[in-house]
Amino acid sequence: MMLLSRRPSFTTVMLILGLLFLYLPMVVLVVYSFNASRLVTVWAGFSTQWYGELFRDRQILAAVWTSLKIAFFSASMAVCLGTVAAFVMTRYGHFRGKTVLSSMVTAPLVMPEVITGLSLLLLFVQMAQLIGWPADRGVATIWIAHTTFCSAYVAVVVAARLREIDRSIEEAAMDLGSPPVKTFFLVTLPVISPALAAGWLLAFTLSLDDLVIASFVSGPGANTLPMVVFSSVRMGVSPKINALATLIILAVSLVTFLAWYLMRRGEAKRRAQLKQVDSI
């Protein structure tokens, strides 16, 4: 009986297998980025030459810079747009257009990228014909496209937080005569700031990662990192891409670890404060 109860349950085994399934391919990528051979599947000794080649590849470096710029500005705008949308959805009662707005906030979460990309391209082409803008597609059109689909993710994250927090603090501020705008910036915004940070990071990674929508709405001038990587991997496996993958995995892991550490510390601090209150 003792033995039976110690045996890990079916679900625990599945969890471990599932995590192995998720991580083994990434481990393979990392290991083979240090392979001396050009053939990704044959091990020929340890080498860091592919990292050197990666950093000498001007096309990839330029694409990294373009992608980082677009991701930064898309995430920032998406946080503004998504937060306002979430606020309107959760704090305003009924208004005309609420159903339309709520559909437009959730639909981009599941909309196939080829449809979003194609439809936005047709819009930009039509706009160029009617008002002469955008004459050239590129960074600006990708920024608009990314802002639009990223704001849906931000809205969901922020709306969840807005529903969670205690509304009586906001009501108290308003009862004491604080105008709505002031209440929002001085009371609501500080409380939901962790959700804003999470939404910004999510939007940033989504924008950095998008290939399909960017390919549709970009012009000849702007190549994002996924576009360059895609044209390279289409030709087959390349160790330089493995080196790039390793750096991306490293960066994401570091940020995730940092976020986890901050959350844990915040939790510990709160618990300590509660203890202090108890002892008084």
Binding site: P25, I241, I248
Partner: peptide, 14 residues
């Protein structure tokens, strides 16, 4: 949160 494209690419080598 890492790259979708690169995670699909990993399976090409496998």
């Amino acid at each position: 949160w890492t790259s979708f494209l690169i995670r699909v690419y990993a399976w090409m080598g496998i």
